[in-house]
Amino acid sequence: MSKPIIQVKDLSIFYGEKKAINSVNVSFSEKQVTAVIGPSGCGKSTLLRSLNRMNDFVENLRVEGEVLYKDQNIYAPKIDSADIRRQIGMVFQKPNPFPKSIYKNITWGPQINGYDFDPDALVEKCLKRAALWDEVKDRLDDSALALSGGQQQRLCIARAIAMNPEVILMDEPCSALDPKATSRIEDLILDLRNRYTIIIVTHNMQQAARISDETAFFFDGDLIEFGDTKEIFTNPVEEKTEDYITGRFG
């Protein structure tokens, strides 16, 4: 496997008194798709949000341990969390395009961050990479909210790409979409794997098997098993993993 870009070291996350993540150690490889699977409430989304400090907005949340991004602890005091989020983008569970035009959805991020860019070229590049260009190229000034759910989610991916991130985190990006839109997003993720590091939380095991190179299985705040996706799905080491992927619980 290629070298790790994000390393999680002894990470524990608490909601008030409740421990959601229990001293997890895991590393995510560069330019790979890593799937994070596990039953509802196992802490997989909490872990994902801790990788670009989106957890900062949750009240009563406490983080212990380290998350190293390119060997730098993103929870170190001098780190600017906005700077981290510029490099580690995020796509959310429910499509959340900005209530602006399709065009502005792409250009807003680079603009507020003072990037030097050619807006027309950027919009075209990002929408092409997100496989949305052909559907929207004639109506870039229309409201992003007029798009279908699947198109909105691809726009959110395009918007994340516009920031030129190294890593894109995806939090169950297909859970609000129909099967057809889901398969388009999956194709897109496979297209993007060579350019970006993608970490995707999913509760759909077939999806994890289809699109990921590596898989991490979480249960009740613990990382149970981590490894090559093929290995995990064909020959899991832990009994719990096997029970989960064969559908005995979850």
Partner: peptide
């Protein structure tokens, strides 16, 4: 979700408010 979307783009709080929340 709009605020979080904006934060995820590296926006600062005033940018989220002026650029997203106020127009909405």
């Amino acid at each position: 979700s709009i605020r979080y979307g904006a934060y995820a783009m590296g926006a600062r709080k005033w940018q989220v408010i002026v650029g997203q929340v106020l127009p909405a």
